[in-house]
Design a protein around this nucleic acid. Structure first.
Lengths: 213, 213
DNA sequence: TATCCTGTATACCCGCTAGTAAATAGGTGT
DNA sequence: ACACCTATTTACTAGCGGGTATACAGGATA
């Protein structure tokens, strides 16, 4: 029989796991504070208080405040990147794949780490983290753009400037992080489906009987 | 012959005008700093330096830092509100009017005070300014939504949840402030037209011969 | 000439917060 | 018993930045 959930005499592995979990807990508390009050307005004492510990405890798990923020946005960006890459590996026309990608993207934007990506401005990160931040964002942007381009090539997406189209789409999706209210009437899924439907079909009504996908 | 541009012995009126112009200059310098480095990361010494004056000079024209930020976002919001109201007074179908509104909205988002609206998070303002900020935003949101609803009623806009549709549109437009680069290849007009075209027509190609408006 | 108002500067205070030093307490290995 | 490691605390430093007290210069007023 393996060790119970919380071992009285934890093994080395269990201690290692506990350390990782504590690190995660710091991150989760931090991202909530950042999203609620903003990075600059959040002191590490705030984060520590939220966990009922003191500031040096946080420094036991992270080097400095910037590192904490970067870890938060990294998690968010990696969620998006994973969704983007998963979709790239999928079969189907460009529009169909883009639709799947946008749905995932939208849902991520209602979650803590996803929100953090939108709510964090470049200049809040150190020069170093900022560069990595931008790198990850560019990676995602290029993946989305490739899907858009594929769709334009295979005729499932209307032709246009792929860069501008991509920014328009991701803008609408990113903005969800700014207005989504977990206590509101719309669930993340509903928001995702509604927003994507509007982006795919456009405002102007369609008289043709084109499948809506 | 009236007074020259810069009078040696200015009249009371001219002094009043000069005071207003200096206040404006502070605002313009401030909004540039805020947009570039963020509100919290901008010290009033930064703003003062940008104008080659010192901090107390700024306090001669504004009560505190919060008031400066609020004035900036107010200008941006009022530009948008004016565009929204101008369009409401216009003749035409819902989609046609919404299109005009979105074009103006998009262009405003490439300008200093417009950018400031998007780049400023609620929690950066004092409780008092925040309430007014939200009031203005709600006003704009409702105006846009009314146009959307009108379009859904008159059949020029596809039916859907007006609130969600409005957020999706304004999200795409607001996000322009985050990526527009004045040194880039696309001029504000081109961005506005491209983004609006995508939002109106949607990603899926249209097989019908519907006018694109 | 004395006074007052406006705009600006110098010099300062105070609070907040990132980050650190040092101590403690428990566990682990020897 | 002793040395060591980890997690956490208390108590501190140091610097930044919002905001202010005060002084000063120039023009207007009387």
């Amino acid at each position: 029989m393996p060790a119970p959930a919380k071992a009285l005499w934890p093994s080395a592995d269990e201690k290692e796991r506990e350390r990782r979990e504590k690190r995660e807990a710091v991150l989760r508390a931090a991202v909530r504070c950042f999203n609620e009050k903003g990075f600059h307005a959040t002191s590490l004492d705030d984060v520590a208080n939220a966990l009922s510990v003191t500031k040096p405890t946080i420094y036991h798990y992270f080097g400095n405040k910037d590192e904490i923020l970067f870890e938060c946005v990294r998690r968010g960006l990696e969620s998006i990147r994973d969704a983007a890459e998963a979709v790239e590996a999928r079969a189907g026309g460009g529009l169909e794949r883009l639709r799947r990608l946008m749905l995932d993207y939208a849902v991520i934007m209602t979650m803590d780490f996803g929100k953090c990506v939108t709510l964090t401005a470049d200049h809040e990160l150190s020069a170093d983290s900022r560069a990595r931040f931008r790198g990850l964002k560019r990676e995602i942007d290029q993946t989305v753009r490739r899907v858009v381009e594929q769709g334009m090539a295979d005729g499932t997406i209307a032709k246009g400037d792929p860069r501008l189209v991509t920014f328009t789409l991701t803008g609408a999706l990113n903005w969800i992080a700014r207005w989504y209210d977990p206590t509101g009437a719309l669930a993340p899924q509903q928001i995702a489906e509604g927003a994507v439907a509007t982006l795919v079909a456009g405002l102007a009504p369609r008289r043709d009987n084109e499948e809506r996908l």
